[in-house]
Nucleic acid binder design. Sequence first.
DNA 1: AACACTATCAACCGCCTTACA
DNA 2: CTGTAAGGCGGTTGATAGTGT
Length: 249
Amino acid sequence: MGWGANSDQQEWRKGPWTPEEDKLLSEYANLHGEGRWSSVASCAGLNRTGKSCRLRWVNYLRPGLKRGRITPQEEGIIIELHALWGNKWSTIARYLPGRTDNEIKNYWRTHFKKKEKASLKQDKRKVLRQKNQLQQNGTTKFSPQAEEVTIKSDGNDNENHDMVAFNYHPSMDQDPVVELPPVTTSSDILYAWTDNFPMDGLWGGLWNLDDHSQASDKCKVAIRNQPATASCSYATDYAVNLYNGGFLF
DNA sequence: AACACTATCAACCGCCTTACA
DNA sequence: CTGTAAGGCGGTTGATAGTGT
């Protein structure tokens, strides 16, 4: 089982790669192409497991990899795609040419995970305020079943892009308890389904909307003050489509 | 200058899926 | 059909660089 056929109890080298090892691996991969990683070790004279060779090639040696900082544009894409797919790093990486799943994963953890924790306490207080406001302005009403509300900023410290999620019981389907104004392209309140609430903070599991069949309707989500224009985020576009398309309510 | 803390990123680990004999 | 190896993925760790006190 595993890589590198460790059946002979061979001691594989671990730790940082040396320039010599990189050279051997690059030469081998350029010559023979990707794949058959377990044979790379023996053929290229590397005392590394196939798994280790593959990782080094994919994350560091492969041609076309971008080095350097994630750009604001890339960050935006990461945020949106993560909102859609969660921790599907390899899937997200396909939309960022030259970036690896490992790189994106690291970036996410260092830039957003901590923000989530730091803002958690503040969010909870904010939540109650938002809930009261929504109830008072008549655009929504909630049954006692909609018991918990959470807010998360968009990660860019933009207060105008807050998202509000309401924990939701499936029984709300039979007896709709949320009333909304018509959604237009300039609406500031959108609702959508999400199938997971909230997995690892709202950004983590909020917008797993790419699969209707998965929607177990555990919560509803609103984006407040987020103009629904043609250029807005995928998630928001999707919410508009869902709502206008009659999927909701 | 020295230490502590934080951020970054390469690399490993374990698990799951797929391919194949 | 079953077992095994290969491939791939996400989570985690550890080393190191950078920054603050």
